[in-house]
Write a protein that binds this DNA or RNA. Sequence first.
DNA 1: GTAAGTTACGAGCGACGTAAAAATG
DNA 2: CATTTTTACGTCGCTCGTAACTTAC
Lengths: 281, 281
Amino acid sequence: MFELNQLEQLLYVHKYGTISKAAEELHLSQSALSRSIQKLESDLQVSLFSRQKNKMELNKNGKLAVDLAAKLLDQAHSMTAQLRSFDRSQRTISLGFCAPAPLWTIPAIFSDIYPEMTISSEIKNTDTLLQGLGEELFHMIVLPCKIESDEFICTKYVEEHLYFSLPPAHPLSSRKTLHFRDLNGETMLLRSKLGFWHDIHETTMPDTHFLIQEESFAFDELVKLSALPSFTSNLVMQREGIPPNRITIPIMDKEANVTYYCLYKTKNEKMLKGFLQRLKM
Amino acid sequence: MFELNQLEQLLYVHKYGTISKAAEELHLSQSALSRSIQKLESDLQVSLFSRQKNKMELNKNGKLAVDLAAKLLDQAHSMTAQLRSFDRSQRTISLGFCAPAPLWTIPAIFSDIYPEMTISSEIKNTDTLLQGLGEELFHMIVLPCKIESDEFICTKYVEEHLYFSLPPAHPLSSRKTLHFRDLNGETMLLRSKLGFWHDIHETTMPDTHFLIQEESFAFDELVKLSALPSFTSNLVMQREGIPPNRITIPIMDKEANVTYYCLYKTKNEKMLKGFLQRLKM
DNA sequence: GTAAGTTACGAGCGACGTAAAAATG
DNA sequence: CATTTTTACGTCGCTCGTAACTTAC
């Protein structure tokens, strides 16, 4: 039987026209490549070149062989790619999130419990998450609401409560509580467009213009230096501390106070066992 | 890049369950095969087996790899088969004949002119020959009639004249000429069912029972020893001599006197040039 | 104890590179 | 004379087999 090695060499000879150039490209001596091609012909029991002492040219067999070799090598490369991808997929846990906050903690927990696994995390909107869970693109997703279904298991994770973050000079900064509508119409800073929070802001504060700053450090600077209102939450403050020179006032709307739930297929319960036990502690 | 060799070994390990048995079947030592499989895994950068000191078992990756390897090897084998078949088809001249007589001479001429070529000769009926010529199963066919067509070139080859071969005691043995109908109804010896002659006999002598003898020597013996009439022809007698103790009487029907024509596609004219020049001599 | 797999070690075959020869433009 | 291919020859490396070790039934 011939070997893939030889087919690759054949393709090089075809690509570069002569044994000499192909050998150079392959980092081989001319003689070595010449012999290797001869061996391929003898393995196939078919002559692939017309030889005239000084010149080699693919004959009809050779041209057919080049086509077939290209296909075979293609399939071989696809085989390794497929295997590596499959192997990788077995070593990765794919998580989907509706918001940034749970993403700050959950992937770290998984890495802790399954140190040899790759943890893949994405933020998507709720519909995409549910569809992805159905298609097994995610092993687990985190939603801002409970889902009752036979297909899935739903476990409470954590609550997030939204706050307005106001400069002390703001007319509403002395209030103990606020609602979305109280600031509707003002210009606000927003850390990112990602997640379901953005949808909630669009519906509960339709007249507000949001200055969106994707980059985290730049956002913090803007909050510090500008007089614009922005949002924060119990989880943000737990992670980053209370913002300096800002008044934080809880938002009382029910949409501003969510509970995150972990959702996963029954078949993945065993795989997620370690994580679920950690949740109970 | 891995090699086909290693995939074959992987399939053997799968087929025979253990490295040891697979190694035995491959005429290899256990250790060599063990190392080779390890190298395959390292080439693929994917583990294919779950190892427990004493035991090896294909893991999920391995099962996928076995499937993919089988397909790849299949394609590799098909590649060599396709190449060899194509190569062979380039080295063979395929000839189709309507009757045995032209086959006695034409293949020999081709072998003479193209000593490096394989000459493939078959006897088929006229329809099959024409269809085969159209589908390029034959490079040239020989028919008992002229064909006028743009697709094909038609060249006269030789005439064959049929004779009755009668024992001297036969009531008609003193005739100078005969027709098919003169012997219709008698039992006759026939050398072979092959070719268009058989069809002609069936239509021109519908009441005759033919004793068919495929084997040439046996046929000659029967002709010598039996009192049954049979056929011969100018070409048969040219090849084998005049049958002893037999009277040969020409058959005057037009169906009994045919001219053979060589028929080939225009595109094959160049390839057949040597043969066609020989015909003119 | 038998049967399995991995690892160490030495040997042989095969593939490599250098170099020479032959041929072409 | 430069370029290309093939062949001869000596060397190196890879893969092989033997053998020792380990483990499981």
